[in-house]
Amino acid sequence: MKTLLSRLWILLFWLALVAVWEISCRVWAVPEFILPMPSAIWQAFLDVEFNRWMAHLWATLRVALSGFFISLAISLPLAIVMLRSATIKKLLYPMLVVIQATPVVAVAPLIIVLVGTEDPSRILITCLITFFPMVVSTITGMSATPDELIELSRSLQAPRYRETWQIRIPYAMGHIFSGLRVAITLAVIGAVVAEFVAAEEGLGYFIQFSTSFFKIPQAFAGLIFLACVSLLLFKSVQWVQQLWFPWSLNNNE
């Protein structure tokens, strides 16, 4: 009941914000190219055919999600290896930091030239941007396992892989998921950055395209749609955590 009420308040707040936006634009006659009215944005949204929206959404989503899952598939084993071997960690960690410190926007055009203008290069760009938070959160999570549990494992003389799979990784889930929440929004950013550099479809491309035709309300519609998609993906990661890894939510021992 209480949550329902607070949700209602949040909804009211957003509606009020939109209303204030609409009214201020009308009262001060703000030109469309500076800040379009919500009604104009809504109209622009409706003017674009549904299946065009879906085509752009699918283009962005398949890049963002492929990049996200490939990143996940690489970062998990890598984190395990780096946790096991201090030498490998010393070898790879600076490399990861360099990758993270390099602005993806700057290398994206090079990647397009090297890898091509199709999805693989866009996915690679997405991987580069999502990779680091995943590796770091996994390593942090696995190192945060209580010493007693590791001692328990050692006192049982269990094989190392079971220590990793039965103790460290489940324990790290809380950390891994906070990394995943960051990574999923970064994945969308990565896909959009890639589309800014080379694309024939996608929400990022659509926004850039709309701007190039000075269709500012349409660009805003694309932007808001993209933000909603991002939010939904973020929420999905949370739902997955709540559904399958509920213990990791209050794992503050």
């Binding site: 030239v113 203008t117 800014f196 080379a198 694309a199």
Partner: peptide, 20 residues
Amino acid sequence: KVLTGRGSTDSITRVAAGRA
């Protein structure tokens, strides 16, 4: 098949690199 580009330099680079 048409690819979009981001300026003449971009276009020349991609043709030079064999991407188009």
